[in-house]
Design a protein around this nucleic acid. Structure first.
Length: 723
RNA sequence: AGGCGCGUAGCUCAGGGGGAGAGCGCUACCUUGACACGGUAGAAGUCAGCGGUUCAAAUCCGCUCGCGCCUACCA
């Protein structure tokens, strides 16, 4: 970079931390809104009466003033330009100059110029030829360039003394409250001082331009993409980067100073002679590089660069960088710059910007801030996997994630649920559990509908998980796994399996159930492994499995031959029937242990066939005494009624039916259906809707409307029959 | 000062032009041989407000209010 003129050494205004006694970059200065004061000072003209008034928030810097500036077009001061004023307390005479950087509307329209201690003043001084005068040392104390009374004083003590003395001498016009941003050191919080010193800089323009282009061309993609705006905005107004630090830790700058001449030798190897005069009295520059400069090289420097090692060739560029937006400029942008510069290619194809974990007050957690929640304490309370799962579940792209311990507790319960589900499977495996490899999945023809249903569902799950991971949707990944494992596998499939595993079940049923239970559990554990690595490994090892570790087991993908829409439809209807019976039981306060008779009138042949083949399953899930298919429900007598997709149902409750409760229950269902039906009807009566909406939407609404109406009629009749 | 994002159930948050969702919490009942860190059923929202686009808006657009963040050399 130095050979190409992209690194240079210059005497320039930098951000200086008097606490750390080093230069820092723009990014390391944290602006903090602070209630301060605006001091208006009066500088008398050297050649006659009167004075010019200037305003400042840092009165101590007046000791380093070498001029006063006004706007060239400001009528009030036009004839003052070129005159001289006497700097109070110091006695130096300094000129009044004109420069367009002055805001005519602010303060008095005249500004004191302290080139060595203010970036604007420095720039203006370079344009107008005012000399810089450094009045502080590296620790922020006034140096020997100020009158003796102030020498050695800390800058804030000097401020008090200067103000007091100006007041005394009549040069202080006013003090007003003033809210402004004060820059503080990111590391030690000391107020940063703009300070003239000699430092090394990166000429950032060409590097930033290439990096901006790479992102614009899509060679690096951002997730979520809106971060590109921030990236571009920063790149657009970037300043040269001060990379030298007066610190001890870091890469020492490979520059050697000659004791005899002013030449500086910059070299990869330690030079033996000065590149300027050829003598041998060389000392290496004591400064080190900004740690972020070294970090910018990380994607290739860690892989053996500048050698073209096999690692470098294979892993550069890498596929994705996962990181936080707080180091988007510090690190990500600079890795792109340096990667393009030295490798001729971006360092990564994708940047996934995570949300920021925040504390209970919504504050960013950081080591510097000291408000970090100890992850070990969270792990102690909820478990490692629960913590990790929570992070994944909360990771909506673009949103922060406030730490929610209640939610984490919920995911600990989920981990416990998985543990118990696996325990159930293990205790039902019999000799299958002692086999070294999992049993083969039976042929589809030998599988029961619930088997085909759960296999179809887990295959679909693998497909959604893959899509979610591809899109960096870790929240969708976690939620899909949670929903499937708890509410499909545990709530329904395990319950559906129990009859097949009960004593007295046929050996064929037992084998079939074992094989499917294991297959699905194995798949879901693998799918879950990236999000709950410890639990899944522990459980997987206890199941019959192939391979050393679940981490190396193939990641499941959608298996099209396992998809079975018919089985999914059938199970959905079974779930609805069972749900209706459970609702009747709960709403009418019927003893949960009591086995109920259920009369069903099927509306079509398909439903009739379904009922016939799943009589035992429905009876087991709904805790029925018997399931009876009837031609008509009219003769059922006192009974709780319900309608499902393809059938009407009645639970005869002679002698115990609470008619009022039953009426309320039915009425509530009717109300709900009516609201739905009205919404649909309104649309279907709207000619514009029928004409302009997409046909499939119209069809969908019409079907939903007809279904709602049909159910509504049947429910209304039922309610009427109650009198 | 510019830029970005967010306001959806009591809480924490998904969703995102056509049926308002999840977890936790809440209510009722249940110790049923995997699991009470559990089960079943249920209550609960003017999707911040106003206006616009559209056959149709929580969803798109504009404005307002509130909150958060980033960037910035007004002394």
């Amino acid at each position: 970079l130095h050979e190409e003129g992209l690194i240079y050494r210059d005497r320039f205004i930098v951000n200086w931390c008097p606490g750390c006694r080093t230069a820092i970059s723009d990014l390391e200065v944290i602006p903090q809104e602070t209630q301060g004061h605006l001091y208006t000072l009066s500088y008398p003209y050297a050649d006659g009466d009167g004075a010019i008034q200037v305003a400042t928030t840092r009165p101590e810097t007046m000791l380093g003033d070498t001029g006063v500036a006004v706007h060239p077009d400001d009528e009030r001061y036009r004839e003052k330009v070129g005159r001289r004023v006497i700097l109070p307390l110091v006695g130096r005479t300094i000129p009044i100059v004109a420069d367009p950087f002055v805001e005519r509307d602010f303060g008095t329209g005249a500004v004191k110029v302290t080139p060595a201690h203010d970036p604007n003043d420095f720039a203006a001084a370079q344009r107008t030829g005012l000399p810089p005068l450094v009045v502080m040392d590296e620790g922020g104390r006034m140096n020997d360039n100020v009158p003796e009374a102030y020498r050695g004083l800390d800058r804030f003590e000097a401020r008090r003394r200067v103000v007091a003395d100006l007041k005394e001498s009549g040069h202080l016009v006013s003090i007003t409250d003033h809210l402004h941003n004060v820059g503080r050191c990111q590391r030690c919080h000391t107020v940063v001082e703009p300070y003239l010193s000699t430092q090394w800089f990166v000429r950032i323009g060409p590097l930033a331009e290439a990096a901006t282009r790479a992102v614009a061309e899509g060679r690096v993609r951002f997730t979520p993409p809106h971060w590109i705006n921030s990236y571009n905005e920063w790149m657009g107004k970037i300043h040269d980067w001060c990379i030298s630090r007066q610190l001890w830790w870091g890469h020492q700058i490979p520059a050697w100073h000659c004791a005899s001449c002013a030449h500086i030798t910059v070299s990869r190897e330690t030079p033996t002679t000065c590149g300027g005069c050829g003598r041998r009295e060389l000392t290496q520059d004591p400064d080190v590089l900004d740690t972020w400069f070294s970090s910018a090289l990380w994607p290739f420097s860690t892989l053996g660069w500048p050698e073209r090692t096999p690692d470098l060739l294979r892993y550069y560029p890498t596929s994705a960088l996962v990181t936080g937006f707080d180091i988007l400029f510090f690190w990500v942008a600079r890795m792109i710059m340096m990667g393009l510069k030295f490798m001729g290619e971006v360092p990564f194809r994708q940047v996934y910007i995570t949300g920021m974990v925040r504390d209970a007050e919504g504050q960013k957690m950081s080591k510097t801030r000291g408000n970090v929640v100890d992850p070990l304490a969270l792990i102690e309370r909820h478990g490692t996997d629960a913590l990790r799962f929570t992070m994944a579940a909360m990771a909506t792209p673009g949103a922060d994630l406030p730490l929610d311990e209640d939610r984490m507790a919920g995911y600990r319960a989920f981990a416990n649920k998985i543990w118990n589900a696996t325990r159930f499977v293990l205790m039902n495996l019999g000799e299958t559990g002692r086999a070294s490899t999992p049993p083969a999945l039976p042929a589809p023809a030998e599988l029961a509908v619930p088997d085909r249903w759960i296999l179809s569902r887990v295959s679909r799950l693998a497909g959604s998980v893959e899509a979610a991971l591809e899109a960096f949707r870790f929240d969708e990944t976690a939620n899909a796994l949670y929903q499937f494992l708890w509410h499909e596998y545990c709530d329904w499939y395990l319950e559906m399996c129990k009859p097949s595993l009960a004593p007295g079940a046929s050996p064929a049923d037992v084998d079939r159930a074992r094989a499917v239970l294991l297959h699905v559990l194995d798949r879901v554990l693998r799918l879950l492994h990236p999000v709950m690595p410890f639990l899944t490994e522990e459980l997987w090892q206890r199941l019959p499995h192939r391979g050393e570790t679940i981490a190396q087991a193939p990641y499941p993908t959608l298996e099209a031959d396992l998809l079975d829409e018919r089985a999914e439809r059938e199970i959905a209807l079974i779930m609805e029937i069972v749900g209706r019976v459970r609702n009747i039981r709960a709403e009418l306060s019927i003893d949960p242990g009591r086995r109920l008779p259920l009369l069903v009138h099927a509306g079509d042949r398909e439903t009739r066939a379904l009922l016939a083949s799943h009589r035992d399953l429905i009876a087991a899930l709904a805790r029925l005494e018997r399931l009876e298919e009837v031609e008509s429900l009219g003769l059922a007598g006192p009974a709780a009624r319900a309608v499902a997709a393809g059938c009407d149902m009645a639970v005869p409750l002679a002698g115990v039916l609470d008619l009022d409760a039953e009426r309320r229950r039915l009425q509530r269902d009717i109300d709900k259906l009516s609201r739905e039906g009205e919404g649909h009807a309104r649309k279907l009566q709207n000619a514009d809707f029928l004409a302009k909406a997409r046909p499939e939407v119209v069809d969908k609404v019409r079907a939903a409307h007809d279904e709602a109406e049909a159910r509504l009629r049947r429910l209304a009749r039922t309610l009427e029959s109650l009198g």
